[in-house]
Computed example of a mutant assay.
Amino acid sequence: MRLGFSPFTTGLDYRAAFELAAELGLFLEIAYDQHEVDPRLPGAKELAEMGRSAGVGFTVHLPFVDWNLASLVPSVWRLSLERTQRALDFAGQIGAYCGVLHTGSVPLRHPEALAQARRLLERALSELEPVVPLALENLGLDEDDLLETPDELAQLLQAHPQHGFCLDVGHALVQLGLEGPQTYHQLLCGRLIHWHLHDNRGASDEHLPCGEGQVDWGWVRQALKGFSGTAALEVTGGAEGVRRSVALLQQP
């Protein structure tokens, strides 16, 4: 398994993030939204060179800010699709191991609206041309999220066998309680290519360092044994939060 962390959630700039990643043998999960809004950040070519120089690889979190692949508004849906494809192309240019994708939201909770939103999401997943493996992430944090149950995500992945699954243990805990991560893992372990690792106390998506909340990290360590994909820490707490999380994951 390759382990990495998100500079975005950690709060580190790229210089500090690359130094920490190189020191600990980690990759970086790049938040594409940041590169869209901040022209000061390195482009794909420069970022790829930074990674080669430091011996640091990448994954990419695809857009999720002002974005919705389940939007009922045609112009919003088209722009979201275009942004996602640009992000996938960016991921390919930096040699990312995978790209992580949210599954959209529907504020209008009417049966016809929900059915149309599902059709639009499926259309987007069919039209995208991923140049890196695509991992659909479990959400279920908000009443507006399109997919409300693990079974719905499983059905979506069954309909799109070209894509994989990202298990976010913090999201699963908030959505389903203490057994949430195990529930998603049992149902979708055969499609699992990426993990998001962070902690919380069960009520909200706090992104605490591993071990500071209620996630069962003994189970996580066991589930990661033999896993050949990638896992990214999405923790707060700066470099120390990453170090503490890595140390906990390395316990026997």
Rank of each mutant, 00 (worst) to 15 (best):
23 E>W: 00
60 V>Q: 10
51 G>P: 02
39 P>Q: 15
198 H>C: 04
145 D>E: 13
17 A>C: 12
238 G>M: 01
65 V>Y: 15
112 E>H: 01
45 K>P: 04
190 G>Y: 00
202 G>W: 15
246 V>R: 00
53 S>F: 05
79 L>S: 11
34 Q>G: 15
236 T>S: 14
160 H>R: 09
172 A>H: 04
229 G>I: 00
208 L>W: 01
68 N>H: 14
248 L>D: 15
193 I>E: 10
29 E>Q: 10
120 L>H: 07
203 A>L: 09
41 L>K: 11
76 V>F: 11
113 A>Y: 08
63 P>S: 04
142 D>H: 10
119 R>S: 13
6 S>L: 03
145 D>H: 05
150 P>W: 01
215 V>E: 02
2 R>C: 03
136 L>F: 06
167 L>E: 10
8 F>C: 09
157 L>I: 08
21 A>N: 02
231 A>V: 01
245 S>F: 11
6 S>Y: 02
173 L>A: 12
40 R>C: 12
4 G>Y: 02
238 G>T: 06
145 D>L: 10
118 R>M: 03
50 M>S: 06
77 W>C: 12
102 H>A: 15
4 G>V: 00
119 R>I: 05
46 E>I: 03
134 L>Y: 03
160 H>E: 07
107 P>I: 03
183 T>I: 12
157 L>V: 02
205 D>A: 14
174 V>K: 05
138 N>K: 10
166 C>Y: 05
121 L>R: 09
10 T>W: 03
156 L>E: 07
243 R>N: 11
183 T>R: 04
19 E>K: 05
30 I>V: 05
186 Q>W: 01
200 N>L: 09
151 D>S: 13
218 G>S: 09
200 N>H: 07
179 E>H: 10
98 C>A: 12
124 A>I: 02
27 F>C: 00
109 R>L: 14
247 A>H: 10
